[in-house]
Amino acid sequence: MNNNLEHSEEFIRSKVGLKNGLSTPENYFEGFEDSFFATLSSEIIPNEHKLEVPSNYFETLEDRILAKVSKEKKETKVISLRERMLQIIPTAAAASVLLFIGLTYFSNSTVTFDDITTTDIDSWYDNNPDNINSSDLAMVFEASDFDDNILLENSIEEESLEEYLNAVDPSTLLNEIK
């Protein structure tokens, strides 16, 4: 069997030789290490990130943002002047009174205005509504504390002003003018 095999091998060798005719481009092996490490780097650190965006995402982005912005503009909440004043006045008054009391009676203590929380003020005001009168407020505030420009600087919507004037008792306004 071995002789038979050797005979066949010999036949192939005599016809074909030991060459298979395959060749490589010139200098192929010389730069192989460098080209391999370049491939390896790109395999480990891909050049492009794999995150994708839906198709036409950027084409329609402007329209979607503008639509959202104009919708938000329309939905802006209008707070009436009266509501705002009613919210601010009690808190400011209570804070002022507390500050006055603190400065008058506890001037030696280390309590500062910052130590008083809004909750404390609200709580004090709720429990002592009769203790506050216009004289108290007048004692606390100087005329210079009130600047007419505040109203000019804070734009008040005409609609809100109208609403406030409609709601307020005319006799109160007359008393104010006197």
């Binding site: 192939i12 074909v16 298979n20 005719g21 395959l22 060749s23």
Partner: peptide, 18 residues
């Protein structure tokens, strides 16, 4: 198709072998 390969420099007998 090896005969059309630019990186094949063999003769007809090598194509037969392949």
């Amino acid at each position: 198709s090896i005969v059309n390969d630019t990186n094949f420099s063999g003769e007809e007998i090598q194509v037969i072998l392949q």
